[in-house]
Design a protein around this nucleic acid. Sequence first.
DNA 1: CCTATATAACTGGTATTACCAGTTGACAGA
DNA 2: TCTGTCAACTGGTAATACCAGTTATATAGG
Lengths: 241, 241
Amino acid sequence: MMNSKTAPFKPVATRKIYQYILEQFVNLVSTGVLKPGDKIPSERELAEIFSVSRPSVREALRVLEIIGLIDIQPGGGAYLKEMELGPFLSVIAPLLFSHENFELELLELRELVEMRAAELLPQTLTEEMLVPMRAALSDMRKALEENDKEAGALADIAFHRALVLMSDSFILQKTLELIVSLFEHSVRGGRSVVLERHEDAEQLMKEHQAIYDALLSNDREKARGLLGSHLQMVRNLYICP
Amino acid sequence: MMNSKTAPFKPVATRKIYQYILEQFVNLVSTGVLKPGDKIPSERELAEIFSVSRPSVREALRVLEIIGLIDIQPGGGAYLKEMELGPFLSVIAPLLFSHENFELELLELRELVEMRAAELLPQTLTEEMLVPMRAALSDMRKALEENDKEAGALADIAFHRALVLMSDSFILQKTLELIVSLFEHSVRGGRSVVLERHEDAEQLMKEHQAIYDALLSNDREKARGLLGSHLQMVRNLYICP
DNA sequence: CCTATATAACTGGTATTACCAGTTGACAGA
DNA sequence: TCTGTCAACTGGTAATACCAGTTATATAGG
């Protein structure tokens, strides 16, 4: 065998065709040339454009589908969308959730993220910044009145999303999205997010309202304290439902 | 168009063939039937086993490759491995790093994770628990003497990995892995992890040593404080290199 | 007998072709 | 105008072939 010292050559990287196609797509998306909603040419057209066979194109599209960058409608076509990790997570979820206590640890991580987001809130909160949070709050109130637990859970998530959004930290937002997605893919996820007892939902609603009020009066410290106890209560609800 | 209220039917979910294959693989891995190192039957065999065509098998394998669950050697075969997010991240990295300050925010998230891990350390630290950390420390010392910056960076990561490992929090470990992987895929990543100035490396080394010493004497509070200032310094080094 | 080389039987990568099932839109008939 | 049909798409799947590698075996040389 030839020693690397005698032959100072570097291995020639041989990438597969689908990787080149993938790279082009990702680059076009990240540079903004391709935007969500855009329609992707048909597989046959792409094969011709890239001068490759249709299977190669399909492998690239398969990956784009898994990373949640395109939506493929059989008979229709493929459309770009805002990247979402759902499809990917639904594949690897069984691997993650085989670990004991994973969901509880997820909640703890969420606590960490949101408490940090609360620290990073801007000095002064304008009325405008609070709009998404207020919307989530009113949604939650309506859901509570109509006893629509599904909508209530969604509004709950929207509230916390709105909070992290105000922190203006890209990575905290992404991390929260990841946590939420993971929770949705958990075994108990679908049910545990939806509160069974009406009084619990009402209690959570009040806590959200209190946090919002504190933020409205620009008392960030108070809001952070309320958020902390709120998250702790959510965790308790999860442990003993 | 038929209203959903007049027709209480639910859409018939039509899953694609590759998804069924994918599901079987993931389930077999998560239940431990298939383990890392196992060789996967050839594409032709799998096609026969599943009674599908080879392209369908290939699409499933393509996804398994992207999620980093198998290693495909052209001409050789496909082997299962411990799941790693590298291949997946290398695809979506351009999408994430198009955001300004993403790397800095990554460091901040790491700070959050490690500080939390330091909180979760067990009450009493046995000699055994500290073995990985001590190993990383000695690696770092050796790398410093030999002026091997590459090895030094690796040992640095290993040190922090060892710290989070002691927290016994699965999700914190996974989150740190994610952060490290993301950093490796960043544009500056490869270079910025490697310190240029020798005196900086020596300084970091001393701080690591101090953290280790504090843990060895079971002074968790002191260790946590040292870790905090250490991480802050790393961030400063990153901002003004 | 042992080693080295050549050969054969694999492997995955890619291309080609074909057919099916579903969607879509235009067009003709009521 | 509405409705049904039909043609031209779309993606999903299959079958087949060939190439370029690897691996194992067998064979020829020492």
